[in-house]
Design a protein around this nucleic acid. Structure first.
Lengths: 215, 215
DNA sequence: ATGTGTGAATTACTTCACAGCG
DNA sequence: CGCTGTGAAGTAATTCACACAT
Protein backbone atom coordinates (compact mmCIF):
# COMPACT_ATOMS: atom_id res chain seq x y z
CA UNK A 1 0.00 0.00 0.00
CA UNK A 2 1.18 3.50 -0.80
CA UNK A 3 3.36 5.23 1.75
CA UNK A 4 1.55 8.54 1.51
CA UNK A 5 -1.89 6.97 2.19
CA UNK A 6 -2.49 7.43 5.85
CA UNK A 7 -3.88 4.66 8.03
CA UNK A 8 -7.31 5.04 9.60
CA UNK A 9 -7.45 5.45 13.35
CA UNK A 10 -8.76 1.90 13.90
CA UNK A 11 -5.51 0.63 12.46
CA UNK A 12 -3.41 2.90 14.65
CA UNK A 13 -5.30 1.66 17.67
CA UNK A 14 -4.44 -1.93 16.83
CA UNK A 15 -0.73 -1.30 16.43
CA UNK A 16 0.03 -1.21 20.16
CA UNK A 17 -1.69 -4.56 20.44
CA UNK A 18 0.48 -6.03 17.74
CA UNK A 19 3.56 -4.57 19.37
CA UNK A 20 2.73 -6.00 22.75
CA UNK A 21 2.01 -9.42 21.34
CA UNK A 22 5.25 -9.38 19.41
CA UNK A 23 7.05 -8.52 22.63
CA UNK A 24 5.51 -11.57 24.26
CA UNK A 25 6.48 -13.73 21.28
CA UNK A 26 9.98 -12.36 21.56
CA UNK A 27 10.15 -13.33 25.23
CA UNK A 28 8.99 -16.79 24.26
CA UNK A 29 11.95 -17.02 21.92
CA UNK A 30 9.98 -16.92 18.67
CA UNK A 31 12.01 -15.59 15.76
CA UNK A 32 9.34 -15.46 13.11
CA UNK A 33 5.55 -15.30 13.06
CA UNK A 34 2.83 -15.52 10.44
CA UNK A 35 -0.17 -13.20 10.27
CA UNK A 36 -2.23 -16.29 11.01
CA UNK A 37 -0.39 -17.07 14.21
CA UNK A 38 -0.24 -13.48 15.41
CA UNK A 39 -3.93 -13.03 14.70
CA UNK A 40 -4.89 -16.13 16.65
CA UNK A 41 -3.35 -14.63 19.80
CA UNK A 42 -5.41 -11.48 19.66
CA UNK A 43 -8.58 -12.51 17.84
CA UNK A 44 -7.87 -10.63 14.66
CA UNK A 45 -8.01 -12.25 11.21
CA UNK A 46 -4.80 -12.85 9.32
CA UNK A 47 -6.02 -10.68 6.45
CA UNK A 48 -6.67 -7.84 8.83
CA UNK A 49 -3.17 -7.93 10.18
CA UNK A 50 -1.59 -8.06 6.74
CA UNK A 51 -3.72 -5.19 5.52
CA UNK A 52 -3.00 -3.12 8.61
CA UNK A 53 0.73 -3.62 8.34
CA UNK A 54 0.69 -2.90 4.62
CA UNK A 55 -0.08 0.74 5.41
CA UNK A 56 3.44 1.04 6.68
CA UNK A 57 5.39 -0.77 4.01
CA UNK A 58 6.30 -4.31 3.10
CA UNK A 59 7.20 -5.65 6.46
CA UNK A 60 6.98 -9.40 5.93
CA UNK A 61 8.62 -12.04 3.82
CA UNK A 62 6.51 -14.13 1.48
CA UNK A 63 6.54 -17.78 2.33
CA UNK A 64 8.06 -17.01 5.74
CA UNK A 65 6.05 -14.48 7.69
CA UNK A 66 7.31 -11.61 9.81
CA UNK A 67 10.58 -11.41 11.69
CA UNK A 68 9.52 -10.85 15.30
CA UNK A 69 12.40 -8.59 16.34
CA UNK A 70 12.28 -6.50 13.20
CA UNK A 71 8.53 -6.08 13.14
CA UNK A 72 8.41 -5.17 16.80
CA UNK A 73 11.09 -2.56 16.38
CA UNK A 74 9.41 -1.28 13.26
CA UNK A 75 6.01 -0.88 14.90
CA UNK A 76 7.57 0.80 17.91
CA UNK A 77 9.23 3.26 15.59
CA UNK A 78 5.93 3.87 13.79
CA UNK A 79 4.24 4.52 17.13
CA UNK A 80 6.90 7.02 18.06
CA UNK A 81 8.20 4.79 20.81
CA UNK A 82 11.86 5.00 19.87
CA UNK A 83 11.74 8.12 21.99
CA UNK A 84 10.35 8.38 25.51
CA UNK A 85 7.35 10.49 26.41
CA UNK A 86 6.93 12.67 29.45
CA UNK A 87 3.47 12.69 30.92
CA UNK A 88 1.77 14.55 33.72
CA UNK A 89 -0.95 13.13 35.91
CA UNK A 90 -3.69 15.35 37.28
CA UNK A 91 -5.78 14.17 40.22
CA UNK A 92 -4.41 12.14 43.10
CA UNK A 93 -7.48 10.61 44.61
CA UNK A 94 -7.46 6.83 45.03
CA UNK A 95 -7.52 6.28 41.27
CA UNK A 96 -4.77 8.78 40.52
CA UNK A 97 -2.64 7.28 43.25
CA UNK A 98 -3.00 3.84 41.75
CA UNK A 99 -2.04 5.21 38.35
CA UNK A 100 0.96 7.04 39.80
CA UNK A 101 2.17 3.84 41.38
CA UNK A 102 1.52 1.70 38.32
CA UNK A 103 4.78 0.55 36.85
CA UNK A 104 3.38 -0.58 33.51
CA UNK A 105 3.72 2.83 31.89
CA UNK A 106 7.41 3.32 32.49
CA UNK A 107 8.35 0.03 30.90
CA UNK A 108 6.70 1.16 27.73
CA UNK A 109 8.25 4.55 27.13
CA UNK A 110 5.77 6.58 29.16
CA UNK A 111 7.28 8.56 32.06
CA UNK A 112 5.20 10.35 34.61
CA UNK A 113 7.18 13.50 35.39
CA UNK A 114 4.62 15.52 37.30
CA UNK A 115 1.75 14.97 39.73
CA UNK A 116 -0.90 17.64 40.21
CA UNK A 117 -3.84 18.22 42.47
CA UNK A 118 -5.60 21.17 44.11
CA UNK A 119 -6.14 19.70 47.56
CA UNK A 120 -3.88 21.70 49.95
CA UNK A 121 -3.47 18.54 52.05
CA UNK A 122 -1.89 16.81 49.09
CA UNK A 123 0.05 19.61 47.44
CA UNK A 124 3.64 19.57 48.64
CA UNK A 125 3.64 15.95 49.76
CA UNK A 126 5.73 13.24 48.17
CA UNK A 127 4.12 10.47 46.21
CA UNK A 128 5.71 7.65 44.24
CA UNK A 129 8.98 9.58 44.18
CA UNK A 130 7.48 12.87 43.03
CA UNK A 131 6.23 15.95 44.83
CA UNK A 132 2.55 16.66 44.26
CA UNK A 133 2.18 20.20 42.93
CA UNK A 134 -0.68 22.61 42.56
CA UNK A 135 -2.25 22.66 39.09
CA UNK A 136 -1.24 26.32 38.84
CA UNK A 137 2.28 25.08 38.29
CA UNK A 138 1.25 22.98 35.31
CA UNK A 139 2.45 25.40 32.61
CA UNK A 140 5.87 25.63 34.19
CA UNK A 141 6.39 21.90 34.61
CA UNK A 142 4.98 21.16 31.16
CA UNK A 143 7.42 23.56 29.55
CA UNK A 144 10.34 22.33 31.61
CA UNK A 145 9.84 18.67 30.76
CA UNK A 146 8.45 19.16 27.27
CA UNK A 147 5.25 17.43 28.26
CA UNK A 148 2.86 16.70 25.40
CA UNK A 149 0.65 14.07 27.06
CA UNK A 150 -1.41 13.94 30.21
CA UNK A 151 -3.51 11.57 32.26
CA UNK A 152 -6.64 12.97 33.87
CA UNK A 153 -7.94 11.25 36.99
CA UNK A 154 -10.15 13.92 38.50
CA UNK A 155 -13.89 13.82 39.11
CA UNK A 156 -16.41 14.19 36.28
CA UNK A 157 -17.19 17.71 37.50
CA UNK A 158 -13.62 18.92 37.18
CA UNK A 159 -12.48 17.01 34.11
CA UNK A 160 -13.42 19.64 31.53
CA UNK A 161 -11.68 22.51 33.30
CA UNK A 162 -8.59 20.42 33.94
CA UNK A 163 -8.46 19.48 30.28
CA UNK A 164 -8.65 23.14 29.34
CA UNK A 165 -5.75 23.93 31.63
CA UNK A 166 -3.76 21.12 30.10
CA UNK A 167 -4.45 22.27 26.57
CA UNK A 168 -3.45 25.79 27.54
CA UNK A 169 -0.21 24.34 28.89
CA UNK A 170 0.48 22.81 25.49
CA UNK A 171 -0.70 19.24 26.05
CA UNK A 172 -1.80 17.55 22.82
CA UNK A 173 -2.90 14.10 23.97
CA UNK A 174 -5.01 13.21 26.98
CA UNK A 175 -5.99 9.93 28.55
CA UNK A 176 -9.15 10.63 30.48
CA UNK A 177 -10.35 8.44 33.34
CA UNK A 178 -13.17 10.77 34.36
CA UNK A 179 -16.65 9.49 33.51
CA UNK A 180 -17.47 12.30 31.12
CA UNK A 181 -16.66 13.09 27.50
CA UNK A 182 -14.40 16.13 27.44
CA UNK A 183 -14.27 18.66 24.63
CA UNK A 184 -10.95 19.60 23.10
CA UNK A 185 -9.89 21.86 20.24
CA UNK A 186 -8.72 20.50 16.91
CA UNK A 187 -5.17 19.23 17.17
CA UNK A 188 -5.66 17.62 20.58
CA UNK A 189 -6.30 13.91 21.02
CA UNK A 190 -8.35 12.31 23.77
CA UNK A 191 -8.96 8.70 24.67
CA UNK A 192 -11.27 7.55 27.42
CA UNK A 193 -11.02 4.82 30.01
CA UNK A 194 -14.47 3.86 31.14
CA UNK A 195 -14.86 0.62 33.07
CA UNK A 196 -18.41 1.31 34.18
CA UNK A 197 -19.64 1.78 30.61
CA UNK A 198 -17.87 -1.38 29.53
CA UNK A 199 -19.55 -3.35 32.29
CA UNK A 200 -22.92 -1.84 31.46
CA UNK A 201 -22.54 -2.73 27.79
CA UNK A 202 -22.14 -6.34 28.89
CA UNK A 203 -25.09 -6.41 31.26
CA UNK A 204 -27.12 -5.67 28.14
CA UNK A 205 -26.32 -9.11 26.78
CA UNK A 206 -26.53 -10.94 30.09
CA UNK A 207 -29.99 -9.55 30.63
CA UNK A 208 -30.96 -11.20 27.34
CA UNK A 209 -29.37 -14.60 27.69
CA UNK A 210 -30.53 -15.99 24.34
CA UNK A 211 -28.07 -13.79 22.48
CA UNK A 212 -24.60 -15.13 21.94
CA UNK A 213 -21.47 -13.05 21.46
CA UNK A 214 -19.49 -13.36 18.24
CA UNK A 215 -17.29 -16.46 18.28
CA UNK B 1 -37.01 0.32 13.30
CA UNK B 2 -38.25 -3.21 13.81
CA UNK B 3 -38.25 -4.56 17.32
CA UNK B 4 -36.84 -7.95 16.33
CA UNK B 5 -33.81 -6.45 14.53
CA UNK B 6 -31.01 -6.57 17.01
CA UNK B 7 -28.66 -3.63 17.51
CA UNK B 8 -25.00 -4.00 16.53
CA UNK B 9 -22.50 -4.02 19.36
CA UNK B 10 -21.25 -0.51 18.59
CA UNK B 11 -24.71 0.74 19.43
CA UNK B 12 -24.86 -1.21 22.66
CA UNK B 13 -21.51 0.24 23.64
CA UNK B 14 -22.82 3.75 23.20
CA UNK B 15 -25.92 3.23 25.32
CA UNK B 16 -24.10 3.55 28.67
CA UNK B 17 -22.72 6.84 27.45
CA UNK B 18 -26.15 8.11 26.61
CA UNK B 19 -27.43 6.95 29.97
CA UNK B 20 -24.68 8.68 31.88
CA UNK B 21 -25.14 11.92 30.00
CA UNK B 22 -28.88 11.81 30.59
CA UNK B 23 -28.18 11.34 34.30
CA UNK B 24 -26.06 14.49 34.25
CA UNK B 25 -28.77 16.37 32.37
CA UNK B 26 -31.26 15.17 34.95
CA UNK B 27 -29.08 16.50 37.77
CA UNK B 28 -28.93 19.80 35.96
CA UNK B 29 -32.70 19.90 36.03
CA UNK B 30 -33.26 19.41 32.30
CA UNK B 31 -36.63 17.88 31.50
CA UNK B 32 -36.23 17.38 27.78
CA UNK B 33 -33.34 17.08 25.36
CA UNK B 34 -32.92 16.93 21.59
CA UNK B 35 -30.64 14.50 19.78
CA UNK B 36 -28.68 17.57 18.72
CA UNK B 37 -28.09 18.72 22.28
CA UNK B 38 -27.32 15.27 23.64
CA UNK B 39 -24.92 14.61 20.80
CA UNK B 40 -23.05 17.86 21.36
CA UNK B 41 -22.19 16.73 24.90
CA UNK B 42 -20.60 13.50 23.78
CA UNK B 43 -19.34 14.22 20.28
CA UNK B 44 -21.84 12.06 18.49
CA UNK B 45 -23.97 13.32 15.61
CA UNK B 46 -27.66 13.88 16.15
CA UNK B 47 -28.48 11.41 13.38
CA UNK B 48 -26.38 8.76 15.08
CA UNK B 49 -28.23 9.13 18.32
CA UNK B 50 -31.63 9.01 16.68
CA UNK B 51 -30.70 5.92 14.68
CA UNK B 52 -29.20 4.20 17.72
CA UNK B 53 -32.27 4.83 19.83
CA UNK B 54 -34.59 3.76 17.03
CA UNK B 55 -33.37 0.20 17.51
CA UNK B 56 -35.26 0.15 20.75
CA UNK B 57 -38.51 1.77 19.74
CA UNK B 58 -39.92 5.24 19.29
CA UNK B 59 -38.50 6.93 22.30
CA UNK B 60 -38.79 10.59 21.37
CA UNK B 61 -41.49 13.08 20.50
CA UNK B 62 -41.39 14.85 17.17
CA UNK B 63 -40.94 18.57 17.48
CA UNK B 64 -39.96 18.19 21.15
CA UNK B 65 -37.10 15.75 21.64
CA UNK B 66 -36.64 13.16 24.34
CA UNK B 67 -37.95 13.28 27.88
CA UNK B 68 -34.83 13.03 30.03
CA UNK B 69 -36.30 11.00 32.89
CA UNK B 70 -38.14 8.61 30.61
CA UNK B 71 -35.28 8.03 28.23
CA UNK B 72 -32.81 7.48 31.05
CA UNK B 73 -35.06 4.96 32.69
CA UNK B 74 -35.72 3.30 29.37
CA UNK B 75 -32.03 2.94 28.50
CA UNK B 76 -31.27 1.63 31.95
CA UNK B 77 -33.96 -0.98 31.50
CA UNK B 78 -32.56 -1.89 28.09
CA UNK B 79 -29.08 -2.28 29.61
CA UNK B 80 -30.45 -4.59 32.28
CA UNK B 81 -29.77 -2.03 34.98
CA UNK B 82 -33.15 -2.20 36.62
CA UNK B 83 -31.60 -5.09 38.49
CA UNK B 84 -28.27 -5.07 40.31
CA UNK B 85 -25.30 -7.20 39.26
CA UNK B 86 -22.96 -9.07 41.55
CA UNK B 87 -19.36 -9.07 40.44
CA UNK B 88 -16.19 -10.72 41.69
CA UNK B 89 -12.75 -9.17 41.46
CA UNK B 90 -9.69 -11.36 40.98
CA UNK B 91 -6.25 -9.97 41.75
CA UNK B 92 -5.53 -7.61 44.63
CA UNK B 93 -2.27 -6.03 43.66
CA UNK B 94 -2.15 -2.23 43.62
CA UNK B 95 -4.54 -2.06 40.66
CA UNK B 96 -7.02 -4.53 42.09
CA UNK B 97 -6.97 -2.69 45.39
CA UNK B 98 -7.78 0.57 43.66
CA UNK B 99 -10.65 -1.10 41.83
CA UNK B 100 -11.95 -2.66 45.03
CA UNK B 101 -11.99 0.72 46.70
CA UNK B 102 -13.52 2.52 43.74
CA UNK B 103 -17.01 3.62 44.63
CA UNK B 104 -18.11 4.36 41.07
CA UNK B 105 -19.28 0.83 40.38
CA UNK B 106 -21.70 0.53 43.25
CA UNK B 107 -23.57 3.68 42.32
CA UNK B 108 -24.28 2.18 38.96
CA UNK B 109 -25.75 -1.18 39.81
CA UNK B 110 -22.48 -3.09 40.00
CA UNK B 111 -21.70 -4.72 43.33
CA UNK B 112 -18.42 -6.32 44.14
CA UNK B 113 -19.32 -9.30 46.31
CA UNK B 114 -16.05 -11.21 46.33
CA UNK B 115 -12.32 -10.53 46.29
CA UNK B 116 -9.88 -13.23 45.22
CA UNK B 117 -6.14 -13.71 45.12
CA UNK B 118 -3.66 -16.53 45.53
CA UNK B 119 -1.08 -14.75 47.68
CA UNK B 120 -1.22 -16.40 51.13
CA UNK B 121 -0.30 -13.06 52.69
CA UNK B 122 -3.47 -11.55 51.28
CA UNK B 123 -5.91 -14.43 51.54
CA UNK B 124 -7.90 -14.15 54.75
CA UNK B 125 -7.30 -10.44 55.24
CA UNK B 126 -10.02 -7.81 55.10
CA UNK B 127 -10.14 -5.31 52.30
CA UNK B 128 -12.73 -2.66 51.53
CA UNK B 129 -15.20 -4.46 53.75
CA UNK B 130 -14.68 -7.91 52.27
CA UNK B 131 -12.46 -10.85 53.14
CA UNK B 132 -9.97 -11.74 50.44
CA UNK B 133 -10.43 -15.39 49.52
CA UNK B 134 -8.38 -17.93 47.65
CA UNK B 135 -9.39 -18.39 44.01
CA UNK B 136 -10.21 -22.02 44.83
CA UNK B 137 -13.29 -20.70 46.53
CA UNK B 138 -14.48 -18.95 43.40
CA UNK B 139 -17.05 -21.57 42.36
CA UNK B 140 -18.64 -21.52 45.78
CA UNK B 141 -18.90 -17.76 46.04
CA UNK B 142 -20.07 -17.42 42.45
CA UNK B 143 -22.88 -19.86 43.04
CA UNK B 144 -23.83 -18.33 46.36
CA UNK B 145 -24.13 -14.79 45.01
CA UNK B 146 -25.28 -15.68 41.51
CA UNK B 147 -22.25 -13.98 40.04
CA UNK B 148 -22.29 -13.64 36.26
CA UNK B 149 -19.63 -10.95 35.84
CA UNK B 150 -16.01 -10.58 36.91
CA UNK B 151 -13.19 -8.09 36.89
CA UNK B 152 -9.70 -9.43 36.25
CA UNK B 153 -6.77 -7.46 37.63
CA UNK B 154 -4.01 -10.04 37.63
CA UNK B 155 -0.76 -10.02 35.68
CA UNK B 156 -0.62 -10.77 31.95
CA UNK B 157 0.88 -14.17 32.74
CA UNK B 158 -2.02 -15.28 34.89
CA UNK B 159 -4.92 -13.65 33.08
CA UNK B 160 -5.76 -16.54 30.80
CA UNK B 161 -5.86 -19.17 33.53
CA UNK B 162 -7.90 -16.92 35.79
CA UNK B 163 -10.37 -16.32 32.99
CA UNK B 164 -10.71 -20.06 32.52
CA UNK B 165 -11.42 -20.53 36.21
CA UNK B 166 -14.03 -17.79 36.03
CA UNK B 167 -15.73 -19.33 33.01
CA UNK B 168 -15.75 -22.69 34.75
CA UNK B 169 -17.41 -20.99 37.71
CA UNK B 170 -20.19 -19.78 35.42
CA UNK B 171 -19.05 -16.23 34.73
CA UNK B 172 -20.35 -14.92 31.40
CA UNK B 173 -18.87 -11.42 31.22
CA UNK B 174 -15.37 -10.31 32.07
CA UNK B 175 -13.73 -6.92 32.33
CA UNK B 176 -10.04 -7.56 31.82
CA UNK B 177 -7.37 -5.13 33.03
CA UNK B 178 -4.46 -7.43 32.22
CA UNK B 179 -2.37 -6.38 29.21
CA UNK B 180 -3.18 -9.45 27.14
CA UNK B 181 -6.10 -10.57 24.98
CA UNK B 182 -7.76 -13.49 26.68
CA UNK B 183 -9.57 -16.30 24.88
CA UNK B 184 -13.06 -17.25 25.95
CA UNK B 185 -15.61 -19.76 24.68
CA UNK B 186 -18.69 -18.67 22.76
CA UNK B 187 -21.29 -17.29 25.09
CA UNK B 188 -18.81 -15.35 27.21
CA UNK B 189 -18.16 -11.64 26.78
CA UNK B 190 -14.88 -9.86 27.40
CA UNK B 191 -13.98 -6.20 27.34
CA UNK B 192 -10.48 -4.88 27.83
CA UNK B 193 -9.12 -1.89 29.69
CA UNK B 194 -5.77 -0.94 28.25
CA UNK B 195 -4.36 2.46 29.14
CA UNK B 196 -0.89 1.77 27.79
CA UNK B 197 -2.23 0.89 24.33
CA UNK B 198 -4.41 3.99 24.33
CA UNK B 199 -1.41 6.17 25.15
CA UNK B 200 0.69 4.47 22.51
CA UNK B 201 -1.98 5.00 19.88
CA UNK B 202 -1.71 8.72 20.61
CA UNK B 203 2.06 8.92 20.53
CA UNK B 204 1.64 7.81 16.93
CA UNK B 205 0.04 11.12 16.06
CA UNK B 206 2.24 13.26 18.27
CA UNK B 207 5.30 11.83 16.59
CA UNK B 208 3.86 13.11 13.30
CA UNK B 209 2.73 16.57 14.26
CA UNK B 210 1.40 17.59 10.84
CA UNK B 211 -1.59 15.30 11.17
CA UNK B 212 -4.64 16.69 12.87
CA UNK B 213 -7.25 14.66 14.71
CA UNK B 214 -10.86 14.73 13.48
CA UNK B 215 -12.62 17.91 14.62
C1' DA C 1 -41.57 25.85 13.54
C1' DT C 2 -39.10 22.03 15.61
C1' DG C 3 -37.09 17.74 15.93
C1' DT C 4 -37.99 12.62 15.46
C1' DG C 5 -37.70 8.22 12.74
C1' DT C 6 -35.99 6.07 8.88
C1' DG C 7 -35.11 4.50 4.03
C1' DA C 8 -31.42 5.68 0.84
C1' DA C 9 -26.81 7.17 -0.01
C1' DT C 10 -22.39 7.36 1.49
C1' DT C 11 -18.34 6.28 3.76
C1' DA C 12 -15.52 3.21 6.45
C1' DC C 13 -13.86 -1.21 7.57
C1' DT C 14 -13.11 -6.07 6.84
C1' DT C 15 -12.62 -10.19 4.28
C1' DC C 16 -11.78 -12.61 -0.02
C1' DA C 17 -8.98 -14.53 -3.19
C1' DC C 18 -5.11 -14.79 -5.75
C1' DA C 19 -0.71 -13.15 -8.12
C1' DG C 20 3.80 -13.43 -7.00
C1' DC C 21 7.94 -13.84 -4.19
C1' DG C 22 11.21 -16.55 -1.38
C1' DC D 1 4.84 -24.89 -1.25
C1' DG D 2 3.78 -21.20 2.30
C1' DC D 3 2.65 -16.91 3.28
C1' DT D 4 2.72 -11.92 2.10
C1' DG D 5 0.64 -7.84 -0.14
C1' DT D 6 -3.23 -6.01 -2.24
C1' DG D 7 -6.99 -4.88 -5.57
C1' DA D 8 -11.80 -6.22 -5.62
C1' DA D 9 -15.83 -7.61 -3.25
C1' DG D 10 -18.51 -7.64 0.50
C1' DT D 11 -20.18 -5.85 5.17
C1' DA D 12 -20.92 -2.69 8.48
C1' DA D 13 -21.50 1.88 10.29
C1' DT D 14 -22.56 6.59 9.64
C1' DT D 15 -24.70 10.44 7.62
C1' DC D 16 -28.16 12.50 4.60
C1' DA D 17 -32.43 14.27 3.80
C1' DC D 18 -37.08 14.48 4.21
C1' DA D 19 -41.93 12.85 5.42
C1' DC D 20 -44.45 13.45 9.28
C1' DA D 21 -46.00 14.22 14.03
C1' DT D 22 -46.63 17.76 17.70
Amino acid sequence: MDKQMMPPDVVVRRLPLYARTLAYLQQEGKKSVSSQELGARINVTAAQIRKDLSYFGQLGKQGIGYNVDELLQHINRILGLSQDWNVVLVGLGPLGQAIARYSGFGEKGIHIVGLFDVDPHKVGTEFAGLTIRHVDELPMVAREHQVRMAIVAVSAEHAQEVVELLVKAGVEAILNYAPVIVQVPTGVWVRHIDPVSLLHSMTYYLARESTLPPA
